Every structure is written in C-alpha cells, then in structure tokens.
Simulated assay, not measured.
Amino acid sequence: MSNLTPRDASTRAADKDRIQVAQLLGEAAAQGRLDLSEYERRLAQAYAAKTYAELDRLTDDLPSVAEPSRRRGSGKPAPATLLLAILSGFERRGRWNVPDRMTTFTLLGGGVVDLRYADFTSADVEIHAYAIMGGQTILLPPEVNVEVKGVGVMGGFDHDVDGQGAPGAPKVTIRGFSLWGGVGIKRKNRKAGGSDQPPQ
C-alpha cells in the first residue's frame, strides 16, 4: 500500500517519476512477478500516468516496490555511452540503463543495440549512429516514440519505422549517417521466454 497522503497522491507526476516506475516494472518482470502482457500493459499505463496516485496503483501489489520513497530519488540519466566496433562488433542487449545520449560507430564491423528490455533513464534519448562499410541494427520496443534524422550515402539508413509509440513514452531521436554500410531501425515485440529475454 502507498504511504502517500491524498494531497500528495493527486500531485502531478514528472517524467522522471514515470521512468522510475517503468524501471521498477522492468525489475518485477525480470524477477518473474509480472508476465510479459501484464508488464507491457502496466508500462503503457506508467508512461501515460498524470499523478502519483496513478503510478502507485501500478506497483502497489509488488513486494518491496510499493514504497514511494524508492522511486522519488534524483532520477539522473545514465552517463553518455559510446559503442565502437572497428573490424569487430558490439551488442547491447537484455537489461541495461539507456543514457540520454549514445553514440554508436561501426567501421568494417557490426553492432546491435536492443532497447526492448532496457531501462530508460531519460524521457528523451538521442542516438548518433554511424556506419562506414559496416552495419548496425537498433531494435525499439513497441511503446517508444521515434524520430529518425539519419542519411545514407551509397548505403542505407532506415526511416520507415512501423507503428506509433504510446503517449508519454520516451522519445528516441536517431541521427547519423551510413557510408557503404547500413543502419537498420526496427520495432520488435518482446518475447516471452525467448533467447533475448532479459536476464532474471
């Protein structure tokens, strides 16, 4: 149960509060406390929540999560990240903290950035993706909003990302270029019990 007073419960939630609840829901799903469909349903509700009361209802039945103080911290974004593959590759999959700014670079190599099971630490994420004679793929969960501003020169940079994101969900802006290479951007559903499920 929540320890909030009625006045506190009606206070409007901020982006950082919604993101912190989304992280707690991800933790509960990784522990097997929520199945995939329930996790995704609550996640969409968390991003659309306007007040603390709406957020509290999403975690009240989860042990060690219901305490409001656990999610009202500083909410600082993860530090900026560089993923580099030169004659090699990189993979970022499973449960990890998505920073508000990330740069990916492949030269005669390849990479995968999978955001489906990741914890967002900011409502706005900017990815600078560069591929030279190499390729990389960015996998997006169904609920995020996306804007693509990349360019392909004698290569490809995906702009046609299927589907719309959920209201209030994080926005991912992808910029950059590919030269004799490619940057693939795809929405992909999470899998229950699949090999790309977050580690428990």
Rank of each mutant, 00 (worst) to 15 (best):
D162M: 13
P68L: 05
Y117F: 14
S10C: 04
D61H: 13
L34R: 06
M133E: 03
D100Q: 14
I86L: 15
M102I: 12
E147H: 09
T106H: 00
S37R: 15
E147Y: 05
K188H: 01
L62I: 11
D158C: 06
D114A: 11
S37P: 02
R116Q: 06
L24N: 01
T121M: 05
M1C: 06
L34G: 07
T103D: 13
E54G: 01
D60L: 13
L83R: 14
I127W: 02
A14T: 15
P77N: 11
A13G: 01
P77F: 11
T121H: 03
R101F: 11
D60Y: 12
L24R: 14
D162S: 15
T121P: 00
K171F: 07
V183L: 10
T137L: 13
I174N: 00
G110L: 09
L55K: 05
L84Y: 10
P6F: 06
A80P: 04
D60I: 13
R92M: 12
R92D: 03
R92A: 10
L84F: 12
V161N: 05
P199S: 12
G94E: 00
P99Q: 08
G32T: 11
R42V: 03
T173Q: 07
G135S: 13
K191V: 03
M102V: 08
R71E: 03
A13M: 03
N189Y: 10
Q136T: 07
G163Y: 09
L107V: 13
P79H: 12
S74V: 12
A29Y: 15
T121I: 04
D162A: 15
V153K: 06
E40T: 07
R18A: 03
T121F: 05
G150P: 05
M102Y: 09
A49P: 01
P198D: 00
F105P: 02
G184K: 13
L179C: 08
S69D: 09
G26N: 06
